[in-house]
Design a binder for these strands. Structure first.
Length: 742
DNA sequence: GACCTGCTGCGGCGTG
């Protein structure tokens, strides 16, 4: 379902179909011509009423491809009500787009209003009084409108022509995407016709998933897709290997004066090769970002050169982050950002010479996104360096460590990058939590509702359609239980908020479907540095490494949770809560097996990485793992599935349910306290797999999302089973593979 | 052995 072929000769040129004021603006901007993606966008939007996905690289002009034709239509509109809604996952992106779109809006006499928590209230009041034009908003602010402006929201959004969803790929997975899907469906119901939806994205793996998300609830025929020609730049790639020193326990902590840890040597290489240009370094965790930024700052100090390496992560203050982003974008001073995932989304960062990845990738979607953020100049190759740190192998080490799985995963990830593989969206674990959130919000919006209507509005053909009527009833019953008190039912059957429901919904924390932790705020000389988790026990005199520097605490405000700090020569890195590793997809785990099985040494490996890959393969052969998937180590048995996180987790639950202690790891599970023969017998037994919902009680924690504490066990168990059902054929195949192996 | 995102309404104050 791509866009229609080039138009017949008598059809007007897309440019000539735009509003005269927009054409004038384009000429004044000095554009020679519209880009292909914009021509296609104009045709698709003006010729067709269907939903649309626009896919093109960052800075390729997607926003204009959507808004030039949409504003052309909106300028002639006579209906009252806001004409266009733009939804973004980030406030910073709204501010960025506002600057571009407000100029066009002014020319067309269409108000353009930013609507997020930090946006000025005056413009919001103005559009409430006179609803028209374009509103740029976050999902949470849409939620707030439904809850706090229930009477006015239909006047605002009841006659929309179109809803543009930016960074669409960020909403295809996760609780927030489900939240937005529900909010859009609620907006659809405010008016007589469903507004068309237009999704924008730079990195889509699965176009059909994106089109399906966008066209949910469409009454006439699916959606269209326009995409830019993806000119594949040359990719220059290196994978570099490093081995930790023998007795290094805390590799990520603040560098000691010896400075021989693998991370220190990674810092040496980055310092020598990235200095003098703009680069992005993705280091995985906030702790590693801090450790690496600290090492790079020290190298600048020792070399007596200006600092040009700076940390960027979600716990740093907006001030520090924006300063760094603007420095990257300006491009006048050489700048390298050492970041977590914070720089994967968001504003255009300008031209970047190279991207580095510290640690083997676990997600191809993420790796692709990172490469896509590198905004190269036309004609220059994309440069990617992957740095791998492996353990020193002691004589008595775990044989699994001998497989050098990080090096192997890096090679496997590169192979899948070349094969253009991107993980498809996975079933969303937090669906019940988001359903309860939307249930409470809908009860407020409707001023009391009946159960059957709530089920119809939220679930039937909707984003929560995976819940059965019985499960939904269970959710209602639990929410109305005396201990939860979220809902109450009037004698006539009308469902209202209960006292705790009122408290919850009126709290400032309610709008987002994701949880947030309590944190210390770090201040120095009146300037905000950022936040660290409250689990860090800090008092006056404590030393802490943060924002790429080291500090001493000189003041504590326990009530406001503020720490006053001053620069200090030393400090330990704070703890950031870590739960579990990012999941690995089946395809990546399977590719790792393939990498270990063949003998080819890719040229993009440096000498150390080649040696590590060789060692891994040698261990793989020596341990007989090409044919056997059992590996006994003292009282443990490793079962090597070579499958992804989802399959290994289910396998671990199965083994636990059968009575043995078991934990999942990256390429299989480890069974404790049984012999290989016993484990084999057990696998034969569980190959006749018990029903999944009976297994759910063996899952370590079913309560994972924000409102799960209000949900009944039976619902959480049933939903766990439902979202894992698609993996069961693979689980059965895995058990067969294990049993068939030597 | 991980990361990220978001936030109302109102009273009180200062300023033009």
């Amino acid at each position: 379902m791509t866009s229609s072929p080039p138009s017949v000769s008598e059809a007007p040129h897309p440019f000539d179909r735009l509003h005269p004021e927009i054409r004038r603006w384009i000429r004044e901007e000095g554009w020679d011509e519209l880009r292909a993606i914009q021509d296609q966008g104009i045709r698709a939007i003006l010729d067709d009423k269907r939903d649309l996905v626009i896919a093109a690289a960052t800075a390729a002009g997607k926003t204009e491809a959507a808004f030039l034709p949409l504003l052309t239509q909106a300028a002639d509109r006579t209906r009252t009500g806001v004409a266009l809604l733009y939804v973004s996952p980030l406030k910073a992106l709204i501010n960025d787009q506002y600057r571009r779109l407000a100029i066009l809006g002014e020319r067309l006499d269409l108000p353009v209003v930013r609507w997020h928590g930090d946006a000025p209230a005056s413009a919001k009041r103005a559009v409430l009084r006179d609803p028209r034009g374009l509103v740029l908003i976050t999902p949470e602010s849409i939620e707030a409108l439904f809850l706090r402006r229930t009477e006015e929201v239909a006047r605002l959004f009841g006659a929309l022509d179109a809803i543009v969803i930016d960074e669409l790929h960020a909403f295809l997975q996760g609780a927030r995407g489900l939240h937005l899907a529900s909010l859009l469906r609620r907006i659809d119901r405010l008016g007589l016709t469903r507004p068309r939806r237009i999704g924008l994205s730079a990195t889509l793996g699965d176009f059909s998933a994106a089109e399906a998300w966008v066209s949910a609830g469409a009454t006439h025929g699916g959606s269209g897709l326009v995409m830019a020609d993806q000119d594949q730049p040359e990719l220059k790639l290196q994978v570099r290997g490093y081995i930790e020193p023998p007795d290094d326990d805390g590799p990520d902590d603040v560098e000691s004066d010896g400075g021989e840890s693998a991370l220190s040597r990674v810092a040496d290489h980055l310092f020598a090769n990235l200095r003098g240009s703009n680069n992005l370094v993705f280091a995985g965790s906030r702790r590693t970002v801090e450790a690496l930024a600290d090492r790079l700052r020290r190298r600048s100090e020792h070399a007596n050169v200006p600092e040009e390496f700076f940390p960027h992560h979600g716990s740093l203050s907006t001030d520090l982050r924006e300063t760094l982003e603007q420095r990257l974008k300006a491009g006048t001073l050489p700048t390298t950002a050492v970041a977590t995932t914070t720089l994967e989304l968001g504003i255009d960062l300008g031209s970047v010479k190279s991207v580095a990845q510290v640690g083997a990738p676990r997600s191809l979607a993420s790796l692709r996104q990172r490469l896509g953020r590198s905004g190269r100049r036309a004609g220059t190759p994309a440069i990617l360096r992957i740095y791998i740190r492996e353990k020193y192998l002691a004589a008595d080490c775990d044989p699994l460590d001998r497989l050098r799985l990080d090096t192997v995963r890096a090679v496997a990830a590169v192979r899948l990058l070349v094969a253009k593989f991107i993980e498809p969206p996975a079933p969303e674990p937090s669906l019940p939590t988001v359903a309860l959130h939307q249930l409470l919000s809908t009860v407020v919006q409707q001023g009391g509702s009946r159960a059957d209507r709530l089920y119809r509005d939220l679930c039937a053909d909707g984003p929560f359609g995976l819940l059965s009527k019985a499960e939904f009833a269970g959710m209602l019953k639990a929410a109305a239980s005396p201990e939860n008190g979220l809902l109450e039912q009037c004698p006539e059957g009308l469902i209202m908020l209960g006292p705790r429901g009122e408290l919850l919904v009126n709290g400032r924390d309610f709008y987002a479907v994701f949880d947030s932790d309590e944190e210390w705020r770090l201040i120095t000389g009146g300037r905000a540095l950022g936040t660290i988790p409250i689990v860090n026990a800090l008092g006056i005199g404590s030393l802490v490494g943060f924002a790429g520097r080291r500090w001493r605490v000189v003041g504590v405000d326990d009530r406001a949770k503020v720490l006053d700090v001053v620069p200090h020569p030393s400090g330990k890195l704070p703890k950031f809560d870590r739960l579990s590793a990012e999941p690995v997809h089946d395809r990546l785990a399977a590719e790792m097996f393939a990498v270990l099985s063949d003998g080819n040494i890719p040229r993009y490996l440096d000498r150390q990485a080649s040696a590590l890959l060789g060692e891994g393969r040698e261990a793989f052969r020596a341990l007989g793992l090409a044919s056997s998937r059992f590996l006994s180590v003292e009282s443990d048995v490793h079962l090597l599935s070579w499958r992804g996180t989802a399959v290994n987790s289910i396998l671990a639950v199965l083994v636990t349910a059968a009575g043995l202690e078991c934990d999942a790891h990256d390429v299989g599970v480890t069974v404790t306290g049984a012999s290989a023969a016993e484990v084999r017998a057990l696998l034969m037994h569980i190959s006749k797999c018990p029903p999944l919902d009976e297994l759910a009680s063996f899952v370590k924690s079913l309560r994972i999302a924000k409102f799960d504490k209000f949900l009944p066990d039976a619902l959480l168990a049933a939903y766990w089973a439902r979202r894992n059902e698609p993996f069961m054929p693979l689980v059965s195949a895995t058990i067969q593979d294990l049993l068939n192996s030597g």
